[in-house]
Design a binder for these strands. Structure first.
Lengths: 141, 141
DNA sequence: ATGCTTGCAAACCGTTTGCAGATCT
DNA sequence: AGATCTGCAAACGGTTTGCAAGCAT
């Protein structure tokens, strides 16, 4: 799933209701980059729907996470932001500028396979977080 | 670092004070397995030092994290637990029994190297989290 | 008509902070 | 002696909950 129509179909198929709020939040999240937090999403959605409440945003984000449209990422300070990336990747958390950068690697898929074989577990998703200094901040040091 | 003596030396070398509370928390954390949360650590430390406060536990865990003795791990429900493992590994979060299991893999080191080359970032630590069903829960399904 | 959803406000809960007294160096 | 640390209690901030009114089916 990734398009608005697919989201609508998903909601209907599960007995969830299709509301303007949910569609607006879906569109907003999809248009945002750079790992927004709930407050940033709330502020952005409010531009289109000034009366929306944070509670509605929280509840819809929970639905979007269940669908697999977004993924919560825990920052080193414990705060939660969201990732709208779908493919397996690594989050690089910069300890200086605090930005998060995504990097892809074929090794992720291999790592998942190896871990499944080694542990006997069945893996359905992953969150890989590296901490250090992004290329820009590493250069400045 | 890993022994009590090394921890003491570290504290002194940084101008931190060596207090009974800090030593007790260090020993307690080192004796606990299975990813305890702050409350569990606090309860355990209280057995030896009944008047200790949660604030002291929080502050000492922060020191231990800075030293690299422990690492905060964010669970899928957003709650934080601690990992006392030092070597690079993967945390498998079971979506059914909610336990966290550690698995090691040589691929982690390779992944770190590849990401550093690809991104230009300098990586100093990592937290790799896989979500799914542990071997026990996968079998029961 | 039914029942899920919204928006509001209050509650919640893990964590942090301010501060006076105690402890370490 | 001087600075840091402890323990307490209050504050904080992000998130969840309860509920009455609204809306989708």
């Amino acid at each position: 799933m990734s398009s608005l129509q697919e989201f609508i179909d998903y909601l209907r198929s599960r007995g969830y209701k299709v509301t303007p709020q949910r569609l607006e939040i879906f569109k907003t999240v999809k248009s945002m980059r750079n790992h927004p937090n709930v407050y940033m999403i709330y502020q952005e959605v409010k531009k289109k729907n000034p009366t929306i409440s944070p509670a509605t945003v929280y509840k819809t984000l929970e639905v979007l996470e269940r669908v697999g449209e977004i993924q919560a990422v825990c920052q080193i300070d414990g705060k939660t932001v969201y990732d709208t990336k779908l493919s397996p990747h690594i989050n690089i958390h910069c300890l200086k500028c605090h930005k998060i950068k995504d990097v892809e690697s074929d090794l992720v898929e291999r790592l998942v396979k190896e871990v499944q074989i080694k542990s006997g577990a069945r893996i359905v998703s992953q969150s890989i977080n590296f901490f250090g200094y992004c290329s820009k901040c590493a250069d400045e040091k």
